[in-house]
Amino acid sequence: MAQTLHIESRGGRVGTPLLEVQNLVMHYGTKEGEVSAVDNVSFTLNNGEAIGLVGESGCGKTSVALTLLRLLPDNSVIKGGDIKLDGESLIDLDEEQMRRRRWRDISMVFQGAMNSWNPVYRIGDQIREALRLHWPETLTYQEETDRIGALFELVGLNPVTMERYPHEFSGGMRQRAVIAMALSCNPKVIIADEPTTALDVIVQDQILRELKKIQQELGMSIIYISHDIAVIAEVTERMGVMYAGKLVELGSTLEVFHRPRHPYSYLLLSSTPSITGPRRKLAPLEGEPPNLLNPPTGCRFHPRCPFAIDKCSSEEPGLVEVGEGHSVACWNWQEVPEIGGLQK
């Protein structure tokens, strides 16, 4: 009985590897040709850890998430690589086995999920539906209600409101309920894709704090996906920077922010305005992201890179370790200055 009220992460001991992504390659087949949306992406998520994937739209960050959950559209092909959850490979599972793991082991807070509630059902009943489909045992109605109440309390909603319909919730409340739903089956991993993008700053801040609190209290493992590096800075411990389908830099959030080694991370950080620190001229990132139908040869960033050398256009750099747990895919990473170093 009490177990149904217990909200936890079913992952292992904090600090041990939980989700390992190795050399993941995923393509979309289109009329014009193959789009290499995810190219050779590897990272590890440890138990109880929050990591972030950051990049512009179209850089492949959402595709990574969809590949992890195998929620890909029909025209996509996983070309290679492996995804291991608790040492078990997810890539070879058939659709039925994957379906059972999807909500129970890995759950997701989708971009714009707060608008995905079905308007004709009560919020609580929609979470109940998820419990019925994915909770290992059959629960009584009362047990379900109790658990939903506990989930609501955890995410800062009054349990009474589970009887309400989506239109009676504000945007922030709906987003909290989405988080409650993601937590409903005690998942091992939560993937949060732009969890606060459509929300106003004050609500965004409340939700991010709530998520961070939950993550720390439950020892939950979360992958945050966002285009907003400020959000990533707020909530993650480690982060990866993606560009044009590739992971170009991976390291602790503190390290990457204070001493980015990849020119793209560097420019991304330098071109983000902030309300703190000195008011400075920001360094613009020239050009536009490449067309992934026909990505540039060598390093995919070289056409926009102010630090590019001859080698960059011909040979593709792999991730190299540049510090403890900090790796970067760049031939010329030594030249990347400290933040503010390019300013006049």
């Binding site: 004050i202 965004q204 801040d205 704090r209 800075a233 707020e234 950080l269």
Partner: peptide, 20 residues
């Protein structure tokens, strides 16, 4: 409150929260 809620692109930055 608005200022205190703006995320800052600096993980070392600790801000004073003002709840409304």
């Amino acid at each position: 409150a608005l200022l205190s809620a703006v995320p800052v692109p600096d993980p070392a930055h600790k801000r004073e929260r003002i709840d409304i």
